[in-house]
């Protein structure tokens, strides 16, 4: 174990940890984005998706995943802090004149984008997961009515023990959340920074793990850029859709609409 510690005490080992945790988060972000985009398929779809996320796995497993993701964020940040401190120590006196030759804006601003993203993650978890941002708890009938809606599957309300299964109205929570211009702006900004972070991070990950060669470098850079932009658009389109009125609240949780659609068929 002592031997392995030497790995994580080395600059390369730390970078490898960042790359691996980064990979987990990169994949999570893509999954999260695809999940979110279901909002455009109707309230019942996204609500059912949210229900599934909470109920498919037993609660301890769910917490396990959550903690794992948080751990990844934690390790990613921790390693970044250690490496940043080492860099600071390595150059106590800077240059009077310093010019950048080829480093990209994204690469040079990883630390800044990272810090803002971290702040965003805290806000985001408080905002939509724990719903503990003062004034945005989404439990007020006036903001979100009703709080709980029926779970709808294949156009039918899902029944269990003769009663309708209900679920939290994620759809309306998102719409309500993004109706706030400031909140939306922060989300759009943060996903923009996420894009920037990914444009460098995704290709850097392959570099750090040594999983590339001269032929693949330009390809990976291209993939990273594509990935970053895809994530940005995929996330940012939701607040934009809310602000422009494309997405609106559906107090029934999609139940009415679903029944109507299924009736016409």
């Amino acid at each position: 174990m002592v031997l392995f510690c030497s790995f994580f005490n080395s600059t390369i080992g730390r970078k490898v940890l960042m790359a691996v945790t980064g990979l987990v988060l990169v994949l999570f972000v893509m999954g999260h984005m695809l999940g979110n985009l279901q909002i455009f398929l109707g309230a019942e779809v996204i609500n059912a998706y949210a229900y599934k996320l909470h109920h498919v796995l037993p609660t301890p497993a769910l917490w396990g995943i959550r903690l794992f993701l948080l751990l990844c964020v934690g390790v990613h940040v921790w390693m970044a802090v250690l490496l940043t401190l080492a860099s600071r120590r390595a150059r106590p006196a800077g240059y009077a004149v310093k010019r950048v030759v080829q480093a990209t804006y994204a690469a040079r601003t990883m630390r800044m984008s990272g810090i803002i993203l971290l702040a965003f993650i805290f806000f985001h978890l408080a905002h939509f997961t724990t719903r503990s941002v003062p004034g945005m708890e989404y439990n007020d009938e006036r903001v979100l009515s009703p709080n709980e809606v029926s779970l709808v599957k294949h156009g039918q309300a899902v029944m269990k023990d003769g009663e309708k299964v209900t679920t939290f109205n994620v759809h309306d929570m998102m719409v309500a959340g993004f109706e706030n211009g400031l909140v939306s702006a922060f989300y759009i900004l943060a996903t923009g920074l996420l894009c920037l972070h990914l444009v460098h991070g995704v290709s850097s990950m392959f570099q750090t793990l040594g999983l590339r060669n001269a032929t693949w470098l330009p390809r990976l850079n291209y993939i990273a850029r594509f990935y970053g932009w895809a994530v940005f658009l995929g996330f940012a389109i939701i607040p934009i859709a809310v602000l422009t009125g494309v997405l609106e609240k559906d107090p029934t949780g999609g139940e009415t609409q679903a029944i109507e659609t299924s009736a016409t068929h």
Partner: peptide, 21 residues
């Protein structure tokens, strides 16, 4: 790598300025 780290150099962040100069 151990010696390199021990000398107090910073870690690589893949920005590529080294290659450029």
């Amino acid at each position: 790598v151990t010696t390199m780290d021990g000398e107090g150099f910073g870690g690589c962040t893949n920005v590529g300025e080294c290659e450029a100069v």
